[in-house]
């Protein structure tokens, strides 16, 4: 029972990341009609926002280490700590949450820049060329990150207070032994909130409703004298922000490295396809579903029956879905069915 609960939570965590990226991919495909292979790179840029913020906050100076008295020893002390003592240390400790504040405007700018600077020239070009140019962009971003930050994963821990684990076993009456890291729970809540806000924005605000109407029938909305293009560009920026925030929040779970973007992109694309191209709720549903399935498939009990299943389960499901129900779980009929 407890194993199942833990696997479920693990799956939801992973699924949260898939869902957030897939949500952005779907929004972009639905609004701009563009297949964005660089979306994983945006996720990764978010993660490296956190890495950079942490690096900036811990810029240090050398001071004499007073605790060593036999000879002159020096140690590195972050300026923040030197100036503000414990307050400074606490700010450093909170590097990841602080990065969110940095990431939002930054990712918005990156997203808008990317759409205006590159994507818009590809609206009318074939899907193959869209895939290729965004694939090229993804390589460029990945290599820039590698050049700047090196090839190794960079640990970016969560704040001290929540570094431990929650005794969820007690909550569910499974005993004290069942614990789960706080941060992962927070991540889950965060994913839920972001997804809910995105849906609320698109379904409850007039602005969002116009965007959705534009996704369904661009011409008519255009005829109403609404500058749908500008809204789509802004929506692209928002998709970038969502991916970036997801990246920031994921860093304590998975130390970021330069190829995390590609890794997540491939899986998120599969998620989009399973959920149904163009269906927002499908993307979210499929994201969580595949995350959970993947997590259960990696249990030893399952692996002993189907060796290797954890490696391929997601792809296998995608293949089956594409063959028996090409429009995906919740895709509209006729949207990219062939």
């Amino acid at each position: 029972m407890d194993v199942i609960l833990l696997q479920l939570l693990n799956g939801l965590d992973k699924g949260g990341a898939y869902a957030l990226i897939a949500l952005g991919l779907t929004i972009i495909f639905g609004t701009l009609g563009v297949v964005n292979f660089a979306h994983g790179a945006l996720f990764m840029l978010g993660a490296f926002c956190a890495v950079s913020v942490q690096a900036v906050l811990t810029i240090s100076k050398k001071v004499k280490d007073e605790s060593i008295t036999f000879f002159d020893a020096y140690k590195e002390v972050p300026y923040l700590e030197a100036w503000w003592g414990d307050t400074g240390a606490m700010i450093i400790d909170y590097a990841v949450p602080i990065s969110i504040l940095v990431a939002i405007p930054l990712m918005l700018l990156i997203g808008l820049g990317m759409e205006r600077g590159l994507i818009r020239y590809f609206y009318k070009r074939p899907h193959a060329e869209q895939i290729l140019v965004t694939f090229g962009l993804a390589i460029v971003v990945q290599e820039l990150i590698k050049a700047q930050f090196g090839a190794n994963p960079i640990p970016t821990p969560a704040p001290e207070v929540i570094a431990g684990s929650a005794s969820i076993g007690l909550w569910f009456g499974l005993g004290e032994a069942v614990v789960y890291p706080w941060w992962r729970l927070i991540y889950l809540a965060f994913a839920g909130v972001v997804i809910a806000s995105a849906f609320a924005f698109l379904n409850l605000t007039t602005y969002g409703m116009v965007v959705r109407a534009g996704m369904a029938d661009r011409e008519t909305v255009g005829l109403l004298g609404i500058n749908i293009q500008r809204r789509f560009t802004i929506v692209f920026g928002m998709a970038a922000v969502i991916a970036g925030m997801a990246g920031v929040m994921y860093t304590p779970i998975l130390p970021p490295d330069y190829h995390m973007g590609m890794d997540f992109l491939v899986l998120s694309f599969v998620v989009v396809v399973v959920g149904g191209m163009g269906s927002l709720s499908g993307a979210v549903l499929a994201g969580f579903m595949l995350g959970i399935l993947q997590s259960f498939a990696s249990m030893n009990e399952v692996k002993s029956i189907f060796p290797g299943i954890d490696q391929i389960i997601i792809y296998l499901i995608a293949v089956v879905i594409l063959l028996v129900r090409p429009r995906g779980l919740m895709g509209r009929k006729g949207v990219m069915e062939t």
């Binding site: 396809v273 490696q311 792809y315 594409l322 090409p326």
Partner: peptide, 24 residues
């Protein structure tokens, strides 16, 4: 399937082969 679905299917198969080659 054709179009981008075809691309993603081939990608999925290749990743599957790659993962399997490393594991089972």
């Amino acid at each position: 399937r054709s179009g981008i679905y075809f691309s993603i299917l081939t990608l999925a198969f290749a990743q599957m082969s790659y993962n399997l080659a490393y594991s089972v």
